[in-house]
Write a protein that binds this DNA or RNA. Structure first.
Lengths: 204, 204
DNA sequence: GTCTATAACTCGATAGAC
DNA sequence: GTCTATCGAGTTATAGAC
């Protein structure tokens, strides 16, 4: 029989299922049975494609980290003016987090579990180098374009305001009585609100 | 023999050990054996004092949540002027987080695992009510004391900038090459930097 | 490649001596 | 109250049929 609709390979089904389960429950909380169920196959097949749980987990972990960090790098490396970089960073990050809301908590958790593993694995040639971005801030301060501020704090503030609401999503939702759509809409408006908040604070 | 130095009860040793292990590894990742080792006793004794793992975990979870939230409530309920509240919130929170750096990631993780449990357990009579604080912001906007800003964003920004760096501690440390002392010192200076950053942004 | 059955092991929990 | 020994449920991982 000719397949008109391309079928998803077992391997891809597993990877997708593993992503869902690991992101929701973490390495320790996830069960191979959960992943098999989610993928609609049996446990044995998981081991056929990926030798053991650790290996499967690492595929997902690396994919997640790869999704989270290169965008930062791009901002760090670009030659754009400061305010433009800030706007772009916040905009792109929130767009991505709206699609992958569990990514930050998952990755930060696993970094906290094994900082050395993370450092070895992801801090090779592709490591984000914030120096350039920090120097740019320093330069603007010296030129008097923005008020005096320690570059590190500005960077932390920008990243914190962008990512944290997704980590604390259920807390904010319960606390402020927001349903999913209201939360999504609030994050959407933060794409403009955060850069504005920052720029109002630092520009002269 | 008269005990001149008061000995720590087994129960207290267990609670302290359980706190360390659960905060570091979460409910799913923690092992009763780890807790027993950390406390310097054996597993059986854990079950003697606390029937099962879940019960022991809940003691720690409740203690952690109780440490994290009442401070927020205090700020929400107080009658102080807006800027003063912001300064106080940031200052007190960072002081507490420097002593308990793992608290936020632990609590946010478990909230994400079981939002309903959290809601039932901690959203009873003592639930933080941000309405008053949000109304206060709204009022200041109307009076023209601060620039127009949606109260929810201001609240999210303040909380995010205060808490997130502790959640992302290893990430920031690796990325910016900060040792523990340098990180502590950076957080210490954020007690002033964050309120300044906010106030510069919103005051007219 | 995919499945069923089961081995091998981890871990929470209990029994029972002291 | 505290310990050693062990049970039994739940999980990862493998064997082997198809």
């Amino acid at each position: 029989m000719v397949k008109l609709i391309k079928e998803v390979s077992a391997q891809d089904k597993i990877l997708l299922a593993a992503k869902n389960v690991f992101l929701a429950k973490g390495m320790a909380g996830a069960r191979m049975q959960d992943i098999a169920d989610e993928a609609g196959i049996n446990k044995a097949l998981l081991h056929y494609y990926f030798r053991d749980k650790k290996k499967l987990f690492e595929m997902i972990y690396e994919e997640a980290a790869a999704q989270l960090f290169p965008k930062i790098n791009f901002i760090f490396e670009s030659e754009a003016p400061l305010f433009e970089k800030i706007e772009k960073f916040v905009e792109e990050y929130i767009t991505m987090l709206l699609v992958n809301p569990f990514l930050p908590l998952f990755v930060l958790n696993e970094i906290n579990q094994e900082p050395q593993y993370f450092q070895k694995k992801f801090w090779g040639k592709n490591k984000p180098k914030p120096e350039k971005f920090l120097k740019q801030i320093e330069k603007e301060v010296k030129q008097g374009t923005i008020r005096p501020i320690q570059p590190v704090h500005l960077l932390m503030n920008m990243i914190s305001m962008t990512i944290f609401p997704f980590i604390a999503k259920p807390l904010f939702q319960i606390n402020m009585a927001l349903n999913d759509e209201q939360f999504r809409s609030a994050m959407e408006s933060r794409k403009k609100e955060i850069p504005k908040f920052i720029i109002e604070s630092i520009r002269k």
